[in-house]
Computed example of a mutant assay.
Amino acid sequence: MRPEALMLFAAGFGTRMGALTADRPKPLLPVAGRPLIDHALQLADQAGIARKVVNLHYRGDQLAAHLASRPDVALSWEREAILETGGGLRAALPLLGTGPVLTLNPDVVWSGPNPLTTLLNAWNPARMDALLLLLPAGEAGRAPGKSDFLLDGDGRISRANGTDGVVYLGAQIIHTEGLANIHEQVFSLNRLWDRMIARGRAFGLIHPGGWCDVGTPAGIAAAEALLAADV
């Protein structure tokens, strides 16, 4: 089944940005003259994804106002508390619908092929419960040993456990049925990934392009340089 909906995680406080997020949510920070959330939505539009959901918490009213001109974007409010990636995705399921979904972190910038299209073209529901977009740790700016996963010859992922491997880039396709079996309200998608890894149904794919985490003020300049080089 081809995923038809995208979840954009936009509820966080953006504390690593310091003063830049004191009066606005991180997805509204400009990179190359456009808010981060608009860069992410452009990827979704280019990939032909019609149904998009954004979760909101910190200064969510600002983000909601910015998205008011986008009738194709639904809002999943987390008013009382941030639910993290797993809880946030589960709360948004009534808006996302059934079946596998794409998820994307809007606080990253990409060059090269559209990451969502790359995932859609590689998705194989007969083998996969999750497909994560990855880069080798060195290419993602991680120190040796600071990896998320190992990637085997068949494309399956396992936990790195300190071994130099690959880094998750914040874009994936994932089946959501297993979320109902997690009882906590606030939890990370790591919980679901670990169950999929144990079943041999979690896969990874190397992104054939550039990537920049816009998590700190220095990341903004790096992201703008990446985009300028990709023109």
Rank of each mutant, 00 (worst) to 15 (best):
S111I: 02
D23Q: 15
Q172L: 10
K26F: 09
T98K: 15
A68T: 14
P217H: 11
E80F: 09
F13N: 03
D154M: 08
L75K: 13
V31E: 09
L96C: 08
W123A: 10
L75T: 07
D230L: 11
S188D: 02
I82S: 07
V31Y: 14
I37N: 02
L56N: 00
V54S: 01
L133G: 09
Y168N: 05
M196K: 05
A202V: 02
S111P: 00
T176G: 07
G215H: 14
D194V: 03
A222P: 11
R24L: 11
A130T: 06
L89A: 02
G99C: 08
A198W: 03
A225S: 14
A143W: 06
G97H: 14
G18E: 05
H183Q: 10
L227P: 15
E224A: 11
G162V: 01
L135K: 15
A74V: 01
I173K: 03
P30V: 04
I82P: 04
G88W: 04
P115S: 06
D213E: 08
L150R: 04
I182Y: 00
A122W: 07
G210I: 09
I182T: 02
K146E: 09
L63R: 08
K146D: 06
G178D: 12
L28H: 15
L20N: 13
G162R: 01
L102T: 01
N114G: 08
L41G: 09
D129E: 12
N124V: 09
P71G: 13
H183A: 15
L36P: 10
R199D: 14
Q185T: 08
H175D: 11
G219A: 06
G60K: 06
G88L: 07
T15S: 10
D213A: 06
D23W: 10
L135C: 06
G141T: 06
A64K: 14
Y58V: 10
R70F: 01
L119V: 02
H183P: 02
V186Q: 11
L132G: 09
Q172G: 11
E139M: 09
V53D: 03
T98F: 08
L89K: 00
K146P: 00
F203K: 04
N181M: 05
A202T: 05
L83F: 01
P25F: 05
S69F: 09
A171H: 08
E78A: 07
V214S: 08
S158P: 01
R199K: 15
P3F: 13
A221N: 07
H66A: 14
M7I: 11
L28V: 15
V186D: 01
A68V: 04
A160L: 01
A223H: 12
A143C: 01
T98N: 15
A137V: 02
E184Y: 01
G210E: 10
A32H: 05
